[in-house]
């Protein structure tokens, strides 16, 4: 009886020590993401002629001591209306992609995964933004929306 208890105790102690030593993740994950406000400035004739405004390589700075994923989402349902207040500019007119990739995706109110990594540390992810411009609907005025960039622990299913 005494020998069994001693064995169990020894095994548990070893398991605890091994579990503690080999656990890569800290008790509390430290994560941060920073993005400066984005101002496209004045949209003029050339932009209308092109049909869009292109903003390349917006830096998204991240800091994480655990595997992470970065998401983007809009807090607003649209980009607001021009000075005439007639029509709200659709949120789907705002598109994003990773700078080194090709596929554009519309910004939505649901979080979309921008990037993920098993690596911890600090770094920067560059994204491109495009706003579609239309002569018929984009009346003069200031359009704006708040975007949320979130960094979180990479789910094990990712």
């Amino acid at each position: 009886m005494k020998n069994n208890a001693t064995r169990i105790i020894t095994i548990l102690i070893m398991a605890s020590v091994i579990g503690f030593l080999f656990s890569a993740a800290p008790a509390y994950a430290e994560q941060a993401v920073t993005v400066s406000d984005i101002n496209l400035g004045l949209v003029g004739e050339e932009d209308f002629a092109n049909g869009y405004v292109f903003l390349p390589r917006v830096p998204v700075f991240w800091d994480s001591d655990v595997p992470w994923r970065l998401t983007i989402q809009s807090l607003g349902a649209d980009l607001g209306a021009g000075d005439d207040g007639m029509t709200d500019k659709s949120l789907s007119d705002l598109l994003w992609k990773l700078s080194d990739e090709e596929n554009w995706l519309p910004v939505t109110q649901d979080p979309e995964e921008v990037e993920w990594s098993m690596e911890s540390g600090t770094g920067v992810v560059y994204i491109d933004l495009v706003v579609l411009i239309d002569w018929l609907y984009d009346s003069p005025g200031q359009y704006q929306v708040d975007l949320t960039f979130r960094i979180e622990i990479l789910p094990e299913t990712s």
């Binding site: 004045l42 655990v66 960039f149």
Partner: peptide, 22 residues
């Protein structure tokens, strides 16, 4: 304890553009 506790962080960024009369 050794499993990381979620401490996700977010940054709200203002996106603005000004359309002129064209």
């Amino acid at each position: 304890i050794t499993s990381p506790v979620s401490a996700d962080s977010e940054d709200i960024t203002g996106f603005t553009m000004t359309v002129t009369e064209v």
